[in-house]
Amino acid sequence: MAGPRPAQNMLGVAGLMPVVVSIGLAMLMLLPLGSGLADYATPHLVMISCFYWLSWRPLLMPYGACTLLGLFLDLWLGAPLGVNTVMLLLTRLFVLNQLKYYKGKNRGVYWGVFSVMAFGFFTLSWLLTSAVAGQFLAADTVFLQWLVTSFFYAPVAFVLGRLRRWVL
């Protein structure tokens, strides 16, 4: 039988790891990695990170942390303020409500659930950004970013999993 899930105050500094790792991934999203395609089809590493930690340690990724991460992303990426914040808040809401249906299933199910959720949120971000631009922006680049993000879920989740077992 699995023990109770640790809360942030029980783990001390280690409990901050999910948020710190997510901030690190947000910075990684900003780095110029040298290819034009990579520049605009960078995987949404923070969404992957939030989904992962919420699925495994929901108490360590509270709504406040999701808001902070979303705000950092909006500011650093130059996206309209509020768009990434809404996406990450909805990620938390989604995982907390749906976790009971996929918890304990194999990794493929987690991957599938993430892809479906990400599709919905990328569509929402496309609509919100189009509203700010005053016209429908090209949907193909958003679709490409969703594909890349979905593809990258497995390797990033693997690394986060190693980190979780090592620290938490």
């Binding site: 780095l31 110029p32 949404h44 958003v142």
Partner: peptide
């Protein structure tokens, strides 16, 4: 150049 931005919606 130390960073890129905009994601799918902006080229900056």
């Amino acid at each position: 150049v130390i960073g890129i931005g905009g994601g799918a919606f902006e080229r900056s």
